[in-house]
Design a protein around this nucleic acid. Structure first.
Lengths: 232, 232
DNA sequence: TCCTAAAATTAGGCTTATCTAATATACCGG
DNA sequence: CCGGTATATTAGATAAGCCTAATTTTAGGA
């Protein structure tokens, strides 16, 4: 019998684990114990213990010493939390004057307390937006989520701001180099200049200006910020 | 060293106990273990245990086998919860289309999760109201609360709706009788007719019509509903 | 292949908050 | 003033989540 059929309510702790595992699994491979522990700022044994309970509840699959992956039920729960989080953030920014960078902590607390009905009312009041203030897509009540179109750094026009979302290569050398100059997922960047004839791109990252060759820039997938809105 | 100086954060459970004790203490005498247990739907031993911990933390005074009373610090915490609860209720009714009777449960969950900053933003967005949708006063950030003017049932004009708030007598016979006909604190009433020359009042309580003598009606203190707003 | 370092798990303990069962206290009527 | 009932407290157990210390497993390098 699955947890859903047993009609169980998830504790805030469990919800946080599912969220963390969902995020860590985006990359494809299973989330490891230490990844989860670091993400949630907990000890590894705490994670081991919780993982066992979550597996018993049918929310994830655990291969000991290997890692965990969410079951469809676990993923549903994680997407529900993602929806809550992003709607709350959007509401607080849109209606209560929060700034996009100050809103995360508040949403982190509220997402465990609001009812589904309130989330739906907030979403309706906002016109059922598809994206939050950070540009991230908001899952629907059914768990469906808009695809985000990532733009290669090499295609961004000069002057534009964006957020690095993914490095489209598995070459360790390149990944290491990109990390070294700060072009990691989540990093905010601004294109300073594009040089013609497939030349390099000059980009500002964390205050520093970096020059990135055309080929490498093509593998740095970015999410464009306001003004070139993905919801268009 | 008091809990406040130790900078402790109260758990949701503790907040609920303080709220319950605050409400039960309105009547004057200390709150008893079984009152608290009934109010929170917990066993008496659970309450005994928690009461001991709260007394250790300096949030209340406990005289074993007698009852508990909040310390100034405990009262501050309770009023902070009351403020949160009532601002949340007001916001949800005013801005998100909740009805005044459906809003309680949602507020009960949110009041433990919202930050002080969010409460202040919600209050500001509402124009710092002094009363919630039920007509109850909202404590300020400093714990101050508007006095509510209660109107004796004998003074209410015919047709007016009100809520019974207090019976201004300690005569057990009268209290028992008032309870019998449903004129208890919290009961919603409507004045059907007032009879002249200090005659009785006909009032609808829980669907039934009751006739109350002038003297007794003078001791049933009511809070008038919308249209004769206490915030005037 | 073997050995070691990193990662994961198990063992054992703590705190909060709840419960049921047993015991202690208070109050009221005779 | 004495006993019985109602109320309160203590005793002891449980579950969720967290921790540190000890152990086990995996994987990479000589």
């Amino acid at each position: 019998m699955t947890a859903a059929l047993r009609n169980e309510v998830l504790t805030p702790s469990v919800e946080d684990y599912l969220k963390a595992i969902y995020h860590l699994s985006r990359a494809g491979h299973p989330a490891t114990t230490s990844d989860i522990a670091q993400h949630l700022d907990l000890s590894a044994p705490s994670v081991s213990g919780m993982v066992k309970r979550l597996a018993d509840q049918g929310l994830l699959e655990h291969v000991p010493y290997k890692g965990v992956e969410l079951t469809p039920e676990g993923r549903r729960a994680a997407l529900r939390m993602l929806r809550r989080h992003r709607i709350i953030e959007t509401y607080l920014v849109d209606r209560l004057g929060y700034t996009w960078d100050s809103v995360h902590h508040e949403a982190e607390r509220l997402e465990h307390a609001v009812s589904d009905a309130l989330i739906d009312r907030m979403a309706a009041a906002l016109g059922n937006p598809g994206f939050d203030p950070h540009g991230d897509p908001i899952p629907g009540p059914d768990g469906s989520m808009a695809e985000v179109i990532y733009t290669p750094l090499s295609d961004l026009p000069a002057g534009e701001s964006a957020v690095v979302r993914r490095a489209d290569t598995s070459d360790a050398e390149r990944l290491r180099y990109l990390a070294e100059i700060g072009l990691v997922p989540g990093a905010g960047i601004q294109v300073v200049a594009r040089h013609p004839f497939s030349g390099p791109v000059t980009v500002r990252v964390e205050g520093a200006e970096r020059v990135v060759g055309h080929a490498l820039a093509g593998q740095v997938l970015c999410q464009r910020q306001r003004g070139a809105d993905p919801r268009a």
